[in-house]
Computed example of a mutant assay.
Amino acid sequence: MPDTVRGVIAREKDAPVETVDIVIPDPGPHDVVVRVDACGVCHTDLHYREGGINDEFPFLLGHEAAGVVETVGSAVTHVAVGDSVVLNWRAVCGECRACKRGKPQNCFDTHNASQPMTLVDGTPLSPALGIGAFADKTLVHEKQCTVIDSDTDPAVAGLLGCGVMAGIGAAVNTGAVGRDDTVAVIGCGGVGDAAIAGARLAGARTIIAIDRDPRKLEWAKDFGATATVDASTEDVVERVKELTGGFGADVVIDAVGRPETYKQAFYARDLAGTVVLVGVPTPDMTLEMPLIDFFSHGGSLKSSWYGDCLPERDFPTLLDLYRQGRLPLERFVTERIALDEVEQAFAAMGEGNVLRSVVVR
């Protein structure tokens, strides 16, 4: 039978979020109902609330989640009732042109639940990134679930569902940071600090953290930054070059996603270096630069969707590194909050007071 639970929705553009009753339908053949034990408050959720993703209101927010499978559809084989899982928004289809070319990390037709969750009056909800996990329960496709050990802290594990995976993957998968590389990361929030942690795991020699907030620069050191640049007082490009022997960094990761930070990333890299854009721009942003500079600098300009990850491959690996003490995932969890405190968490995010607020049961 359908289940009525609490959920956090964005009803219209820029309006404060609301905690309301929502209806979870019975799962279709390949759907599962997951009890949500923890869900991180990601900047992408704020983008949804502000209308920066699309205008398909009302949205059921939340997507960076971990929980336990409660109910499964008739044809589900990927998970079982009682499994502890991390939810993901790249449930690869295996059939699209990217998958058939051996690049499932670029899957263009990822799986989602077969039917919408709704408000009590029947209004369909648009789940953030196909998940919608600021709720007591959510409905997803079975392939959106990655099984993890049941004793893993869900507040920590859930962060792999988006921000931490996006940042680590931007460094390791998209940027292909290697041993002895020099790396610069612009923006030291959750994604940027994850990119720093990823660069450290990959063996980078120099890791430069760049931000306008001194508190965030201090946090970045905990994740492996070897040098910091205060963008509010220093010339980012010149300072990065000073810290890399006058050349620029081998890999520069823009975890902000604004035209001005992208330009900094472009000019702060070494000749033939790599720029990785993992911060999410809004649809109105544009970039104007001399075309000759793209030609003369060479190298690679890449966008990183979800850190170019494969959840079934990468989530267990990162959790193993966490258990080994090599990846401090717990440091990303700044505070644990209740479901009805999401709006306050957005405010804390805007003030730069947190890496991650995490909604917990």
Rank of each mutant, 00 (worst) to 15 (best):
D3N: 13
T4E: 04
R11Y: 08
K13R: 15
A15Y: 12
I24K: 01
V41A: 04
R49I: 04
P58T: 02
F59P: 03
L61Q: 06
G62Y: 00
E64R: 06
G67N: 06
V68R: 06
V69E: 03
V69Y: 04
A75H: 13
A80K: 15
V86P: 04
L87K: 03
N88S: 05
V92N: 07
C96D: 11
A98W: 12
A98E: 14
K103R: 15
K103H: 15
H111N: 12
H111Y: 14
M117A: 11
D121C: 03
G122W: 10
L129Q: 14
G130T: 01
G130F: 00
G132E: 05
K137G: 05
L139I: 05
V140Q: 05
V140L: 07
Q144R: 00
C145M: 10
V147W: 08
S150M: 08
D151E: 12
G158E: 03
L160G: 08
V172P: 04
N173G: 09
V177F: 12
T182C: 09
V185T: 12
G187Q: 04
C188E: 13
A209K: 00
D211T: 01
D222I: 07
S232E: 10
V237N: 03
E242R: 12
D250G: 14
D254R: 02
V256Q: 00
V256I: 10
G257F: 00
G257E: 00
Y262V: 15
D270E: 15
D270V: 12
L277C: 03
T282V: 14
T282N: 11
P283K: 01
D284S: 12
M289L: 15
P290C: 09
F294Q: 03
L301I: 11
Y306P: 06
Y306L: 12
C309Q: 10
P316C: 11
D320L: 07
D320V: 08
Q324G: 09
R326C: 00
P328M: 07
L339R: 11
D340Q: 10
E343C: 11
F346E: 08
A347Q: 14
N353T: 14
